[in-house]
């Protein structure tokens, strides 16, 4: 009885989280252009999507920024984690405190603070400013997922590698890096996801004429969202879902590979 109640509760929460996603998927097959009415089933928005250059441009920008920013953030964040192990306690906790600022701070404050920075430095708004901003709010996610792994690492294995004659760099990549890898990967994924979903910070730091999917949708809200957007979002979501299911379905293979 108790377990049934628990399952129902979990199911309701999941329904709550995923119902809007279901709605968007249904809308992507809606013949009618308005959200309010079901006009019959169609694939036409999926076809139209690939002819809509504005949307494809925004998609390209979004993916480019998400990928580049999380890659750079991953490198900076991981290197920062490694360097922090050699730091004094006090310096380390100050740096970690600063790391937490973009996570705890309101997006709107982060957004306008960066906007003011770019203005006073005279940097032209565009892809570059979006990229810099995304790297900034992505680094904390990387550090927070690599840091726990870093703490678990047994320094003796690194020293053992040195003892057996490998150079510090070689020892790091052969012995330490593989242990950090899961943390680095999940940090990268988290950063990628956050970058993809960001609207507020991009809103304040983008230039005129440059759009990511988020800002494009925001400008479309007033005149009505193009159904191609629903189609695109559904495609992205289903792709990610499929990838994750595939990864999760083969845990035994993964273990063997390890």
């Amino acid at each position: 009885m108790k377990t049934v109640a628990k399952r129902i509760y979990i199911a309701l929460i999941i329904l709550f989280l995923y119902a809007p996603i279901g709605i968007l998927m249904v809308l992507s097959f809606n013949e009618s252009k308005t959200r309010a009415k079901w006009g019959g089933f169609t694939f036409k928005w999926y076809i139209a999507l690939f002819q809509n250059e504005e949307i494809l441009r925004a998609l390209f920008n979004t993916l480019l920024i998400a990928f580049t920013s999380s890659l750079i953030a991953t490198v900076i964040g991981t290197v920062a984690c490694i360097s922090m192990t050699g730091m004094k306690r006090r310096a380390k906790s100050i740096l970690m405190g600063i790391t937490n600022i973009p996570m705890l701070n309101a997006d709107i404050v982060t957004g306008i603070s960066l906007m003011l920075l770019y203005i006073s430095l005279g940097i032209r708004f565009g892809m570059g400013t979006i990229l810099l901003s995304h790297i900034t709010f992505n680094i904390p996610y990387v550090i927070l997922s690599v840091m726990p792994r870093m703490r678990q690492i047994n320094i003796s294995t690194y020293e053992a590698a040195l003892d057996l004659g490998s150079s510090p760099i070689h020892a790091f990549f052969k012995v330490v890096f593989p242990d950090l890898l899961p943390g680095i990967l999940s940090g990268f994924l988290m950063a990628f996801t956050m970058s993809l979903d960001d609207f507020i910070i991009t809103h304040f730091t983008k230039g005129v004429g440059v759009d990511t999917l988020s800002t494009k949708i925001y400008t479309e809200i007033k005149k009505g969202i193009k159904p191609e957007m629903y189609a695109l979002s559904s495609l992205i979501f289903v792709t990610v879902l499929t990838l994750l299911v595939l990864i999760n379905l083969s845990p035994t293979d993964k273990k063997k590979a390890e």
Partner: peptide, 24 residues
Amino acid sequence: FIILIFILPMWMNFLLRTLAWQTL
């Protein structure tokens, strides 16, 4: 897997997801 369930919705744009609540 549990963490993924809660992060996965973020792959559908936040504005669109909120907008879908209008329809609901």
